[in-house]
Every structure is written in C-alpha cells, then in structure tokens.
Amino acid sequence: MNITLTVNGGEHTADVEPRRLLVDFLRSTVGLKGTHIGCDTTSCGVCTVLVDGTPVKSCTMFAVQANGRSITTVEGLKQNGDLSAIQKAFKEEHGLQCGFCTPAMMLVGTALIEENPDPSEDQIRWAISGNLCRCTGYINIVKAIMAAAETTREGASS
C-alpha cells in the first residue's frame, strides 16, 4: 500500500505492507534510528513518538494507520537548529544514562508540558508511567521534565 507521512515536517512516501509497524517504517524506511524498540507488548514505551502531537507507542500502530498524519520523533525536537528546552534539561539534570528510553521520555515530556505548563512531580510521574527506564530510577527524568517546564514557562512569559 502506498502511504505518505509527514515526519518532522518532511513528507515521506513509500509502498509498505499493511503489517509494517510504524516504528519499523520510521527506523528502516525513513531511516530515523532515534525511535527504539524495547518490547513486543506495548509495555516499555521506548518506541513512543508523537502522532499529530499525541504520544503513541509506534510499535502498536501500523504505518498504514499513520497515512496522511504528522509524526514527530526525537530527531524533530530541535527548533531552528537549537536544542529544545527538554533536550537541554535532560543533559543538565542528568536525566539519562544508557540513552535508550530517552527519546521517548523527552517526547512524552514535551507533550505533557504542551498540555500542562506547570506540572507537579506527581503529574510528571503519572504522565511517564507508560514508559520504562532501567537506569535512572526516574528521579532525574522527573527533575529534567520539571526543569524544562520551568524554562518553557519563562520563555513564554518573556
């Protein structure tokens, strides 16, 4: 089936089998390797991308379902060539170790801040509870999202 997706602002057209998962389309067809695969059961969330701004586990959506829709991956987080607030915050707050869950965590954090510019620690923990991390104990991921929310608020008010 012939499909066209907008990925990080650019259009990508390809002929795919209906069973091809969105995550494989992004990784193999588009060639963006920042979206990872960690489980088979929609549990770990490392494949999370934004579909029309909403976090979705891309291992649990067929590429054909995303036909005509707009996808944001970690590679699309930079704005005008600059790291986004959340990317900076993950580095600043030591919010990552092995880096495997990081793209997903940053995307979920981005969507959360978009919806709730001033999230509490509990709200952040709840929002990322569909995404696993094995390295950090989540402490610094939560801190990073909190910090990114703060800089985003400051940026918006200045």
């Binding site: 990784r27 390797k33 991956t73 970690v74 790291l83 990552l96 880096g99 990081t102």
Partner: peptide
C-alpha cells in the same frame, strides 16, 4: 561534569546495534 555522551543521545543520534545497517 555534565555528560559528554548525552549530546548524541538527546538528539536520537546514538548508535546501537539495531541501528547498524
């Protein structure tokens, strides 16, 4: 010291085995 390796990971530019083609 802030981590050197983060620069690639936060941009999705790590290079894990499954990324190798």
């Amino acid at each position: 010291r802030k981590r050197v390796e983060d620069a690639r990971f936060i941009e999705g530019r790590g290079n894990y085995v499954d990324d190798i083609e």
